[in-house]
Design a protein around this nucleic acid. Structure first.
Length: 935
RNA sequence: GGGCGGUUAGCUCAGCUGGUUAGAGCGCCUGCCUUACAAGCAGGAGGUCGCAGGUUCGAAUCCUGCACUGCCCA
């Protein structure tokens, strides 16, 4: 029995036990629903972590939020599919294995492509997917039977199909362009993979001699080494300083090549000297200018950014060494005429930090505009909603400024581009095909597959439909596509989310979700079923306690597993949920987690109390309706399922019963509302306040005498009280389960003693509010009693009364029904306020010392010891100030005819009542101050 | 350079579409091992909501400017 267990909750063993149980029992596996299925469906794709990944706080936040939403839907009767998998992560994984090889003194080229890829697979099978094991520790309720890997054969097949179709539609092209090149990885990368950084650099001024004159033309550059590849000097046509030089040539220093002076917008008169060098092979703007003027493109570097043969005497040098040498030589020969400090933005490789080299090379591109137009439309029309809303505009802005997407990577690990080139140097035909062609269709020559692989995001962008069997038309797609929701980090809004929308809108055009399921799921107002998801929720960034972004280099990374180890998974999950207000970053603070560990302990001990009473009273937990309600609609009221509202098996006998029932229904309503709009923090805080502040602090305290039947009481009273306690606990556990799955499962299973109506609380029904169980009168009455009890406690503390000493009190009430209320709950007041006897008096007690009061009552603790007059005066003074401030504010508004005319009725009424009550309090305070002769 | 946030108690944060005397956790102070829980219970102190204007009957909340700060994009 639980009560035999330690007083303190120890999460470790309990959590791993249930995590294993859930997986072993396949509780979250979802078979394909057959045609005719009418239940609502909820589908969520796990953003696939890199196969090389290790769990960090961002993942944990993401997964906690997903798991909360998923468990919540499942408990409300949705067919709930959460689809997990991992990403092959081209660059990251390849690097991992290259490092491994390095330790063996080898390079990937030593192995050759085939052997190398074998090694990567070996690595993947041995170490890959560690992050999924870590996920299990978090309790993520995913369908492990459907786990995928982006390089699985079926997914790779889909990737080839997509590429070929795009090519056939003219949306894929190949060409020589300037791309972001990482010399360390020796591959092209996309714009998104480049991070810009401001650095202190220099601006050098170099003068070029004008051919056939003694004149020089001076240009400024931050990258002097590229001058070796200059093919022109540009000046602005409007710039009169250079008009006389139009059509002339300059002699390129060091290389002794003649290059033309051209006029182009590239040169802006106000910048530097107004003349710029043009290096089409090494700068994107120069590249464009070069095309406008038909300039030659001279590439002076190789793929490692070492100078090549085109760099003449500098060939073989690293680019930074070359810069030094070029500058040295220019200076020596008198061409270097200036050097200034200059702040410039440089691009670095997102993964290795190497400075990006704009490089002219042959790459494959996706023509983005047609895809982007539809993707923009999907969001603009509201077919996809993005939460928080401000990301919608960010998304649209990005879509409006989108560039073609370079999808080829010069790597080995990844989906190889399904394109072949004819080896015949006179033919060089390019063939894009689903299967390898036997020979060149044009000349019959031998063909070779293009060695490039695809950007990893190319394949992950397809996942919403490829994981559901595309390009086949499957039942899974009818049921689960579009997926319902995507929860992800802002960082990958463009990398991934935008691409999924583009690909989904394109390739799933004409798709229709099963009509019955769509209706049951509440999406009838959506017209477009080609979108990959109906909603996107962008989660916060988890920072450290000092609001710094966590990073390895700063060494401020908080390891979630470490936090879990110390505080438990439930407490960690609760922390993230409670701090996850939409649109705000989270400064992760351990003290909060420590607080939620205490919360888990509180629940644990409340459970121990419950079990103690169940055993003592001999209460048998039966006769309750089966709480598992499959087939329930999103609002808990769909046809076929019984609406599981309120608390079944709860009998209101006394005020506290009516009160807690009402409060429970309110918290259930609030939590469901909050989760509907992803206000995780609100849901978590509401449950916390209810469980601790209302259920434990008041309800349990109030029913203790009824549970304690031995003192000559009626056992049926105890039985009923115990039934209430148990059924309320059961409902509260279900309410909390999505946030704290482990402790709730542990207690819930114990509560049902092996006779639970389902294998897990995760499959039990989620509490829904029953408005009929709201009881305003009970809440108002209870508030008065709480005020009375707190007032007495307050006075006792003030009077420094020994805690155990029971004292008589006198009460004056303004209305007779309050007296009746107190009379009916006399026992509760006496016990919770340590009162010996309550006497009602006919006259106000306000003037007496040792009195507290509200607008409804005064209470006096009878005790010979005098209160500390100066302290009491001080307190009264503060109280009076506050009251007066309130009164002045209220009167100012009530005296304003505009307010009375324009403010809503209830606001005016509330303010009137408030003014009245404050008036009473003011009189009472003043009376007492006079009586005490306060200064 | 362009865009988007943030600034509320000692600390970390809530405060939704403007409407009672601005809340929580941690920390702090006082008193309690009251038979579920000292990871607890009871009580308490602590904020002119970054600054300056404006809109409104009414502003922490909406608008403008400024200061500081963070992020994204070029």
């Amino acid at each position: 029995m639980l009560r035999e267990l330690p007083k303190a909750y120890e999460p470790g063993a309990i959590e791993s036990r249930w995590a294993e149980y859930w997986i072993k029992e396949k509780l979250f596996s979802v078979p394909t629903p057959p045609p005719g299925e009418t239940r609502p469906v909820f589908t969520l794709l796990l953003p696939p972590p890199n196969v090389t990944g290790r769990l960090h706080m961002g993942h944990m936040l993401n997964q906690t939020q997903m798991d909360i939403i998923v468990r919540w839907h499942r408990m409300r009767g949705f067919i709930t599919l959460w689809l997990p998998g991992t990403d092959h992560a081209g660059i990251a994984t390849q690097m991992m294995v290259e490092k491994q090889l390095e330790r063996e003194g080898k390079k990937r080229k030593d192995l050759g492509r085939e052997k190398f890829i074998e090694r990567v697979w070996e690595w993947k099978n041995e170490y890959g997917g560690a992050i999924l094991d870590q996920m299990k520790r978090l309790g993520a309720s995913v369908d492990w039977d459907r786990e995928y890997f982006t390089m699985d054969e079926n997914l790779s097949h889909a990737v080839r199909e997509v590429f070929v179709r795009l090519y056939e539609e003219g949306l894929v092209y190949r060409g020589n362009y300037i791309v972001n090149w990482c010399p360390w990885h020796e591959t092209a990368i996309s714009d998104l993979e480049v991070k810009h950084e401001e650095v202190q650099g220099k601006l050098w001024e170099i003068r070029y001699p004008v051919v056939g004159s003694n004149e020089f033309i001076t240009v400024a550059t931050t990258r002097p080494e590229t001058m070796l590849g200059d093919t022109a000097i540009a000046v602005n046509a409007k710039d009169e300083r250079y008009t006389h030089l139009h059509g002339k040539k300059v002699l390129l220093p060091l290389m002794n090549r003649e290059i033309p002076i051209i006029t182009d917008e590239l040169a802006q008169p106000e910048f530097g000297t107004g003349a710029v060098k043009v290096t089409p092979a090494h700068d994107p703007n120069d590249f464009e200018a070069g095309k406008r003027h038909n300039l030659p493109q001279i590439n002076v570097m190789d793929e490692r950014a070492h100078m090549n043969a085109n760099a003449g005497p500098y060939a073989g040098l690293d680019r930074f060494e070359a810069r030094k040498r070029v500058l040295h030589d220019l200076r020596e020969q008198g061409f270097l005429v200036g050097e200034k400090d200059y702040t410039l933005a440089i691009g670095k490789c997102d993964r290795c930090g190497t400075i990006i080299e704009p490089r002219l090379s042959e790459q494959w591109f996706v023509k983005i505009q047609p895809l982007a137009d539809r993707a923009k439309e999907a969001v603009q029309s509201g077919e996809i909603t993005i939460v928080p809303d401000n990301y919608r505009q960010i998304y649209l802005n990005w879509m409006n400024n989108i560039h073609d997407w370079c999808v080829s990577r010069q790597l080995w690990w990844g989906h190889r581009i399904p394109a072949w080139t004819c080896a015949n140097p006179n033919c060089k035909e390019v063939i894009v095909a689903r299967e390898a062609p036997a020979k060149c269709p044009k000349c019959g020559g031998k063909v070779e597959q293009v060695s490039d692989v695809l950007d990893t995001w190319f394949s992950s962008g397809l996942l919403p439909f490829t994981t559901l069997g595309w390009p086949e038309k499957t039942r899974d797609q009818e049921v689960f596509y579009p997926t319902t929701l995507l929860i992800t980090a802002y960082e990958i809004l463009f990398f991934w989310v935008a691409r999924m929308i583009m690909f989904g809108s394109h390739f799933m055009q004409g798709h229709h979700q099963d009509a019955a399921i769509k209706k049951a799921s509440g999406w009838t107002d959506k017209k477009n079923d080609s979108v990959p998801f109906r909603q996107v929720y962008i989660h916060s960034l988890v920072r450290d306690a000092e609001r710094q972004k966590m990073s390895k280099t700063k060494g401020n990374v908080v390891d979630p597993l470490d936090v879990i180890e110390r505080f438990g998974t439930d407490a960690t999950r609760f922390t993230l949920a409670a701090m996850a207000a939409p649109g705000t970053d989270i400064a992760f603070n351990e003290s909060r987690t420590d607080g939620y560990r205490a919360f888990a302990n509180k629940i644990w001990n409340a459970a121990r109390f419950m079990f103690m009473n169940v055993d003592r009273i001999g209460f048998v937990w039966d006769g309750f309706p089966d709480p598992v309600v499959p087939g329930q609609g999103p609002d808990g009221t769909a046809e076929g399922g019984c609406p599981h509202t309120g608390i079944a098996g709860f009998t209101s006998v006394k005020l506290e019963d009516r009160w807690i029932l009402s409060r429970f229904n309110r918290v259930a309503a609030d939590v469901n509302d909050a989760l509907e709009t992803y206000r995780f923090h609100e849901a978590a805080n509401r449950i916390y306040d209810f469980f601790w502040g209302e259920f434990c602090d008041w309800y349990i305290e109030l029913i203790k005498p009824r549970l304690n039947f031995e003192e000559g009481g009626d056992k049926s009273v105890a039985q009923t009280a115990c039934a209430n306690l148990v059924s309320l606990f059961d409902a509260a556990l279900r309410l909390l389960h999505p946030v704290m799955p482990f402790i709730t499962e542990e207690i819930w299973q114990a509560l049902w003693e092996g006779k639970a109506p389902s294998k897990s609380i995760a499959l039990a029904a989620y509490p829904q509010a029953d408005e009929k169980q709201f009881d305003l009168a009970a809440e108002t009455d209870m508030a008065i009693l709480q005020d009375l009890i707190v007032s007495v406690r307050n006075l006792r503390a003030e009077l420094k009364i020994e805690p155990k000493l029971k004292l008589p009190i006198e009460v004056f009430v303004h209305e007779p029904e309050i007296a009746r209320l107190i009379e009916q709950n006399r026992g509760a007041v006496e016990r919770l306020a340590t009162v010996e006897k309550i006497t009602f008096v006919q006259n106000s007690l306000a003037k007496l010392p040792g009195v507290r009061g509200t607008a409804r009552f005064d209470v006096h603790v009878i005790y010979e010891r005098k209160i500390d007059v100066s302290a009491e005066c001080e307190r009264l003074k503060k109280e009076l100030e506050k009251i007066e401030k309130g009164i002045i504010g209220a009167q100012k508004q009530l005296g304003n005819p505009q307010f009375l005319a324009k403010a809503p009725m209830n606001v005016v009424e509330n303010l009137r009542r408030q003014e009245q009550e404050l008036g009473i309090l003011k009189e009472k305070a003043l009376d007492k101050m006079r009586e005490l002769a306060c200064p």
